[in-house]
Design a protein around this nucleic acid. Structure first.
Lengths: 350, 350
DNA sequence: GTTAGCAGTCAATTCTACCGAGTGCCAACG
DNA sequence: CGTTGGCACTCGGTAGAATTGACTGCTAAC
């Protein structure tokens, strides 16, 4: 899967003159609204530039030559290209959330309770309900969190459960199935040793395991190995996708819908996509920009969530390239800000 | 949401005579294959009854009158009704899994490792890949499992994590945020008391909590209350849905697709649907039979998974009413059997 | 540089005719 | 009486032609 970083439009994109920008904006807005190609006369009428459709036409020719607009066929109106959307997003799409929705977010965060996972999941639902797009909420991996507690619990003489608690409040379990039978006291002793060994370390720390050949030492070795072999992202299960039913309406063409759904099923893929983007603050990847073929028809809005200034996850919205960028960006921004505040504030278990 | 139990076709459905049954079977099979109405001549040709299309026609009229077939419009062929599918499933659909797929299942279960959750999730993926339908795998709730260990871990002086390990190998966490600050030793002491109190009990047991007013007792009370208030199904998170992208192709009509996806998002609903069915062994709910409006176009195949003879979950397949019942039922049956064996056999952590 | 006007293009729509799959009915047949 | 071939009829789907109308690009005039 060929991937490349999201290309921020640097000096490449020259600012359009004011009239071209207005025309482009009108086309984008109209097309987002109607899903139809937009004609020159519609633009001339809607935008507040007092020029005739003929003038708009000649400007549109220029915009098409420069790659901001495209024509599905002669004698049709224009639709924005990815580049057109990009310009729109970068220069023209400062939106504020409607007051109703703003209240909705406030109410939600005022009333939300429970485990981090539950909060994230509910946030995901909130976002998708608000925007009618598919939302992706990614929680921080606990790769850098330190271990608060390790416990080895007997299931039976051959099977034990390793329960690890991290400083970010996450808990993971691993089963151990050693090839020998261990007594209850051996397991207890191993558990004690593991605590001594691992508390305060992170999954990335190297630790000195005992090299003896007794049962305790073997258990400890196996436990440490299992723990360190675990994939932080996988184990965290910190991905919450909401509103996937919205893709059914967002795209036309069964095959596109199927492809997007299939992508969403592979949560890992979505996570990596989101994570590629979250250094840049609130950001958007449009169509080909994320470099992932099956999502050509999609745009992805991502806003990072931080805790103590360092990245702790992200919220994202996935929609068609003709998505309502203003609303989506505003929603993502507000929700990520609230989430950041939520984690900094009353609830410290994150 | 109006719901009723799946009505098993008892004495109501009179056995059709052999020829009608053959004709019905031919119509069902053909329509499942082609998604088109099936005409009398096609039936006369395909089935091994040596009668003319005219005879088939008159039989079809009867089958329609009795409610097994329907005509989309005059001068079209017939399609099966839900009742028709029901008869097919009950009397005509004994299928065996293709050897290729049988091998696929075997290979999968030979190679599968890891936590119960991972096994269930991968099973779900397997099922959906094999059948091209959406799979639902439900794990047992740990409502009846006994508690093996309880541990209270300090996050900070105001926030603690209650980690509970059950005999079925599941681990759940709850945050506690008492209104007072607790010292490390108070938390340790409360943890000890909780262990003494809860080990061996189930979530349904009543336990005697201390009534003192010190910090330890308060922590213990809060912990027990939190634990007992938790929803087993919710917390277990033991629902795994795979291949939801398949719904995009399974139904025509964007709206139907959206509705089905929306249902799948509400995992609780799917679980209750499945659980209504799993007393009956391998069973099928077709169209209106599950009594849930938005799934009128769907059929659901469910096979229970047992451990030590008692129900421990289920595997299900969700598809259109014109789904390949033979294959789907065979797949569900084989996989549930393998899963049952898997849990009984080498892996005891379930 | 802007505009009105005009000819040209092409998707979408409508209309028509027609085909053909499939039915229902009936008379004849064993 | 059940079965069958034959026949008229229905009606959705398709193919083609005609029409519409929303655009454009171009050009000449302002």
């Amino acid at each position: 899967m060929a991937r490349r970083m999201v290309p921020r439009p640097a000096a490449v994109v020259v600012d359009l003159d004011a009239r071209k920008a207005t025309i482009l904006e009108a086309v984008v807005i109209e097309h987002i609204d109607t899903a139809q190609p937009v004609g020159s006369s519609a633009v001339a009428a809607s935008a507040d530039l007092d020029v005739s459709s003929a003038t708009v036409r000649s400007e549109m020719v220029a915009l098409e030559r420069e790659g901001y607009l495209a024509q599905p066929h002669t004698s049709a109106g224009r639709i924005p290209t990815d580049k057109g959307y990009r310009y729109f997003v970068d220069h023209l799409a400062s939106g504020v959330l409607g007051t109703v929705q703003q209240q909705q977010v406030k109410d939600f965060f005022a009333g939300v309770r429970g485990e981090v996972e539950d909060v994230l999941e509910q946030t995901s639902t909130l976002l998708s309900k608000m925007t009618r797009y598919t939302s992706v909420v990614v929680g921080a991996s606990h790769a850098h969190a330190s271990i608060l507690s390790v416990q080895l619990v007997n299931l039976d003489s051959r099977h034990h459960l390793l329960v690890t608690v991290f400083s970010d409040g996450s808990v993971v379990k691993h089963s151990l199935s050693p090839s020998f039978e261990a007594t209850h006291s051996e397991v207890m002793e191993a558990s004690r040793q593991l605590n001594a060994l691992l508390i305060g370390t992170t999954l990335e720390s190297r630790v000195q395991v005992p090299s003896r050949h007794d049962h305790e030492a073997s258990l400890v070795r196996e436990a440490v190995a299992t723990l360190h072999a675990s994939q932080p992202v996988m184990d965290g299960e910190q991905v919450f996708i909401g509103g996937s039913s919205n893709v059914a309406q967002a795209f036309d063409g069964v095959e596109t819908v199927r492809q997007v759904l299939a992508i969403l099923e592979q949560e890992l893929l979505v996570v990596s996509l989101v994570q590629d983007m979250l250094n840049q603050g609130l950001s958007v990847a449009i169509g080909s920009e994320h470099g992932y073929e099956p999502l050509l028809a999609c745009a992805l809005v991502v806003a990072p969530v931080t805790i103590d200034g360092s990245p702790a996850g992200a919220v994202g919205l996935l929609g068609p390239t003709r998505m309502k960028y203003k609303e989506a960006m505003a929603a993502a921004e507000v929700v990520s800000a609230q989430l950041t505040r939520h984690f900094a504030g009353e609830d410290c278990s994150a």
